[in-house]
Design a protein around this nucleic acid. Structure first.
Lengths: 139, 139
DNA sequence: GTATATTTGTACGTATGTATA
DNA sequence: TTATACATACGTACAAATATA
């Protein structure tokens, strides 16, 4: 396979071009959940760019919740768990926002993952979804 | 006022220390919504660090939805609009995640702002909240 | 158990591009 | 036109966490 073209003169920043390539591989399945990406150094060599551009690209993907990175490890494609239902009772409301650093630690929320707030209770949005209960059927 | 202490040897990375200081000023009200922050260059001088550390700190705050940055402008504290209610009908579910780059453009979603998905419809989470309709009262 | 290498994180620098004032 | 400000992209160096020999 030929290394996808990344050009300095295409108008689009290099790091976004790289992010687009990697995002495509993830969404298309070439990079399956749980799979490790190449190291930043290797990606930089493969794309013929500096490590900075690769890191910016990976930061974008992290921000989209597509990959997760830990120091000492290569980046991995995120394995999205099934979302559990949280019932939103009639008359109640819910909103979503990014977590504070403290909340990220307390609830073990990955980068690029919002939280949902119901009655002041925090639900990481990658593990929970909201469900409006149907009174008639009770489910 | 004395410039808050930022130390290279405190264990906590400099850019996080700076983010903590600025976040505190925002949440405490010293930096009100709509107010401009000092330029990256000035902040770097004030804190006695490189521009990179300041930029990393601002990126954190952007990711938390606290500030917004536009090329050519100084960063500004975000002015959060009131959230409009979106009714979640009984039996329906909603979830939240970070938007794709395309969605961010299409729906004009700022950095650090998640989206809520109901029936495939995208709602920027800083402008909408979910409401479970109460059938008895109709509101 | 101890080094050594690998990998990401942090922090600095420089230069240039693009948008605004 | 000029100056300012943020964005991009390159580089270096070292720290911290992990994996390996």
């Amino acid at each position: 396979m030929v290394t996808p073209v990344v050009s300095l003169h295409g108008g689009t920043p290099v790091y976004r071009q790289i992010a687009t390539v990697l995002r495509g591989r993830i969404l298309q399945g070439a990079l399956a959940p749980g799979v490790e990406l190449a190291s930043e150094q290797d990606l930089a060599s493969q794309f013929g760019v500096g490590r900075d551009s690769v890191r910016d690209a990976l930061a974008l993907l992290r921000g989209e919740g597509l990959i997760e990175t830990r120091r000492g490890f290569k980046s991995r494609v995120r394995d999205l768990p099934e979302r559990q239902r949280v019932v939103l009772r009639p008359g109640k409301s819910a909103y979503s926002r990014m977590p504070t650093p403290e909340e990220r630690v307390e609830y073990d929320v990955s980068e690029g993952v919002p939280v949902i707030i119901i009655d002041g209770v925090v639900y990481p949005a990658d593990r929970f979804e909201i469900y409006a209960e149907d009174r008639d059927t009770g489910r």
